[in-house]
Design a protein around this nucleic acid. Structure first.
Lengths: 232, 232
DNA sequence: GCCAACGATTAGATGCGGCTAACTTACCTG
DNA sequence: CAGGTAAGTTAGCCGCATCTAATCGTTGGC
């Protein structure tokens, strides 16, 4: 029954929930390639106006979380990346915990984790990690950053880009579309499954893909969201 | 990775975290007696200035959560009480869950629950309740409101008010003082224990109390925070 | 090589929840 | 019952994170 929880602090600077969300969004937009992130893509990702994103990014700079070149885009600093990875670690541990320990449906854990990731203390986060046996991947196949902020990103390509005959491991899928998650889980398809592209129709047509659980035709939208660690 | 979580809504009105905190604070200050709550006590409880509390209470009124008589105090409406009880339910379920399922030390669960109570969805709250077997009391002995907003308050008196020779059940203890919680748990004293006041020194002096785990001298501060369901 | 179009930024406003300082009200004391 | 004191309220401010509207930079097409 104490007062409002004050914003967490990193190196003396306030790190509000909004700041964490921006760090996370910038991180995932620049993932892999260290490409600067545009204001408009950031705004779209967060569901805010471009003006808001521009203003917020300007506030992030003196906090030492981003480097910014006006009209050219924004990139996370090391400190910014640490903030993003901490939030992502919380998010993915929570997803795993909610699904495994509490039996929450796979397609709802994302929304719940989205809120809780900003609320749990580092201590609770590590209690959860320990309870889960310090996992390295969440239920969507996404790697979980370590406490000290390192993350093992395996090279993956969208399933949609694979030609017929290619094989690999279904590595991960976006966690943000409940519809898609339900569709996949109903068919017994999960990250870690081995797959082979059996056939590929031209003009962004459906792919026929063989999984352990069977052979399915997958539309272009779905195939772009599913990422594969290709053999060799 | 969606935008900020918007404030939850009840009957069309926004119920922000601050609003929830005020509802909870008013509820516990007027607990038992339906006495109106003064601005200053509310401000002190929440750690804000009296001006802030006054302004906030004025905002609560058009939301239909409180009835207010200027200069005379504030009381929760039925709707306000429902908000408070929902938050309290979340809080106490979380305390129990954090301690039982995750092994978080008893003296830290309060602070964690204080933050999480505003973040968990009703759905997660009920998953947790089910996992715990729909408990009726939290680890501090506080009753847990039901989903539909009823709460069983048993009549208790502060241990400090008992004369020598009185017996009863140690019913509950404030959950907000980690120091005290640690002290009690180190001595194996927990809500539910039977106790007898062996001796009472005058002038707010220490009480000697016999518990199942042994006999202890308890100072006035502690004895005022511990509440007892007295026999008969 | 100019300029239109589009993306980015600035300007100015809003709502929330907090603050201090100044002023009212209620009530108690003499 | 007058007046002082303590509690409560109002006034005016701030910072955060958002918005719309207007302006500015960059760049590609002609």
């Amino acid at each position: 029954m104490t007062a409002e929880s004050p914003p967490a602090r990193t190196s003396g600077a306030a790190v509000s929930q909004a700041v964490q969300d921006y760090a996370k969004a910038i991180y995932s937009l620049q993932r892999g390639a260290g490409e600067p992130v545009s204001t408009s893509s950031l705004a779209e990702r967060l569901g805010v106006s471009a003006a808001s994103a521009s203003a917020m990014v300007k506030r992030l700079e003196p906090l030492g979380l981003v480097s910014r070149r006006p009209y050219r885009g924004v990139q996370l600093t090391d400190a910014g990346e640490r903030v993003a990875l901490a939030v992502i670690r919380h998010h993915r541990l929570l997803e795993l915990y909610l699904a495994d320990a509490l039996g929450m449906p796979w397609d709802r854990v994302h929304a719940e984790a989205e809120v809780l990731e900003h609320a749990i203390s580092p201590e609770l986060s590590e209690l959860i990690a320990a309870k889960l046996g310090n996992p390295t991947h969440d239920p969507h196949g996404d790697p979980i950053p370590t406490v000290d902020g390192t993350i093992e990103e395996t090279a993956t390509v969208p399933l949609a880009e694979l030609r017929a005959g290619r094989t690999g491991i279904f590595a991960r899928v976006s966690d943000s579309d409940p519809e898609m998650l339900r569709y996949l889980s109903e068919r017994g398809i999960a990250p870690g499954d081995r797959l082979e592209v059996v056939e590929r129709q031209p003009f962004d047509g459906p792919l026929t893909v063989r999984f352990t659980s069977g052979e399915y035709p997958l539309g272009g939208g779905l195939a772009r969201m599913m990422r594969v660690a290709v053999d060799q």
